[in-house]
Design a protein around this nucleic acid. Structure first.
Lengths: 335, 335
DNA sequence: ACGGATTGCGCAAACGATTGCATTTAATTA
DNA sequence: TAATTAAATGCAATCGTTTGCGCAATCCGT
């Protein structure tokens, strides 16, 4: 701007006004300045702009905290966030907590320092204190949780309809003839653990089945599934179906069941939750609940931007629930 | 800082010096100021710091351009970049080009405006002009390519050893008894297409086999694989093995071959390239070349940071090749 | 006791933009 | 013709830091 001003013999203030099309500068000058700027491809220094406006205007950087990156669901969510953010003129700063509380705290601090306009976060597994999050909101940085929410905090959140997703999936197992349905879930102190279990339980009751505790297990990964499933299948009254909290676990079950010589889905049905890459790779293909990560990401970004731009009141806690969809494939019977 | 200065009755300059531990401030004052700052948890405004230093010091933001996000290899690379960057005090701004040239150009501009200290990029598929990249380097923003490199530009790059990876994989197929090995590759105008094909060709020659053009196809996704493979298998002298440019394609081949009633690996061997989620989900599990995305990401970040910090001369083009590793599983015969 | 070196600190100008207010010039009105 | 008003521009402060330079005060040796 200084150069332009010098070359055109005007003051920097005039240049600034001309470039922002202020009517207080005469039309001729304005156009001359704009043209000169264009020709010498001038573009404003964002840093300086930000410094000047630091009181009034937030930056256009959204912080995103992810527990891990090499993970179908989180990738999809990131994808959704990126899409929505970039469409609305924001960019995203991504950091991975590695499921560590310490790292999460560091990241929050660093993002605060780097003046993000808001943060979208899924907690690390071992996060049990929330001071760092409260500190952020206290500093005026809006927060939106996704996936792993923090029920203790009355913060905005976007989650998937775990309850109905599971309810529908289990109902489908029942209506296709399954009677003894095992449930592999996550620990009940995560919200999604509770919700999915409740969906399972209610679906059983709704169809007149009883809940058998011996069919309920904490198991959310393939290795554990491969370890505990053989014993399940050797029970006197073995399960004739499995509902797993994610596709990975379901794949583990499928591998064991096939290895033991059972035919899927004729003798054993299996249903997962995610609908990621894996679901169409296994044989038979996996019936699963589609988790719509991209949609979750978009909604999360939408809420955050709403908060940032003031469309939503700053202290408002928007709670959105994204509908799931049952995708029926080869590991369950058709009607 | 102003507040501190006022409260302690000194000038802002003194506060600044004290906080940076300048010896030109007396020890007592320095400590008093530092303590006061700590107690009132002051932290410097990064924006202002940057503005002040904009001439000398680059920012600590690395721009990362990815063609897509929901993709095993790219996720791993992003993971590696994030790990290396955060370990060295940088943060990453992630943008997805959606395989679009236009978007790629936009992203470059936006990152330039936002003063990233450098950019790590894998080109979009339809990028054929490179002005935007040249414009960046001309503006002093170092560039590191990964995966899809731009041979026309003499820029830094980190790629996987496509040639040897393929060479070894095909050699493995041959030594386990395969004689007619089909090759499903990507278009030859991508560097990786060429390199992998050459590895395939040379492995054949090395073992005294001839190259049969009818066994070479352009095919890099599952849908295409499922479409063209049946015809391959109906040839008079059908292939007894397939090498596919990625796991996804290999899975497509596997699905078709199994559907047609062939036994894998006894009658047909299959080898992929990636070693992503899919490889352990299919049945039998996939023999594949491990692509080590995380390592690629780390190296890319390492090179970029070297360029930024001046460890590497700014105009230097560092070219790194990450070794692959053959992971033998169930879709190929063992010795 | 006096000149010269320290030592410790503050002034003010940057960094690149924006903006309230003053100022100049021209046009309008009485 | 003088006074009033409107239009176009410039001055200078500001955002939060850093830093070259200069000014006092203290210290040293002689």
């Amino acid at each position: 701007m200084k150069d332009i001003a010098r070359e055109l013999g005007v003051s920097v203030a005039t240049v600034s006004r001309a470039l922002s099309d202020s009517p207080s500068i005469s039309k001729e000058r304005r156009q001359a300045i704009q043209q000169y700027a264009r020709e010498h491809n001038y573009f404003p220094n964002v840093i300086a702009e930000q410094l000047r406006h630091s009181r009034r205007n937030p930056s256009r950087a959204i912080g995103v905290i992810v527990p891990e990156l090499v993970h179908y669901y989180f990738s999809s969510i990131l994808d959704g966030i990126e899409a929505e953010a970039s469409a609305r003129g924001y960019h995203i700063i991504v950091a991975k907590s590695n499921e560590s509380y310490e790292r999460e705290v560091q990241i929050c601090e660093s993002m605060l320092k780097n003046k993000v306009c808001g943060i979208i976060v899924s907690q690390a597994k071992d996060t049990e204190r929330y001071d760092h999050f409260e500190h952020l909101t206290a500093s005026g940085v809006p927060l939106v949780f996704y996936d792993r929410i923090c029920p203790a905090l009355n913060a905005s959140r976007v989650v998937v309809d775990d309850y109905m997703g599971t309810f529908n999936a289990v109902s489908h197992l029942i209506t296709t003839g399954c009677k003894r349905i095992a449930f592999y879930g996550t620990s009940m102190n995560l919200q999604i653990g509770k919700n999915r279990f409740n969906g399972y339980r209610d679906a059983l009751y709704k169809h007149g089945l009883t809940l058998d505790e011996s069919l309920v297990r904490i198991c959310d990964n393939r290795a554990d599934a491969e370890r505990i499933t053989p014993a399940m299948m050797q029970m006197d009254d073995r399960p004739d179906a499995f509902f797993a909290v994610n596709d990975e676990t379901a794949i583990g079950i499928l591998a064991v069941v096939k290895r033991l010589g059972y035919v899927v889905p004729d003798e054993v049905s299996i249903c997962g939750f995610t609908n990621g890459f894996r679901a169409t790779v296994c044989d038979p293909m996996l019936t699963t609940v589609e988790q719509r990560g991209t949609q979750v990401g978009k909604e999360a970004a939408d809420v955050l931007i709403g908060l940032v731009e003031g469309t939503l009141p700053h202290d408002h806690a928007e709670k959105r629930i994204v509908k799931t969809r049952l995708v029926v494939r080869g590991t369950t019977r058709h009607l």
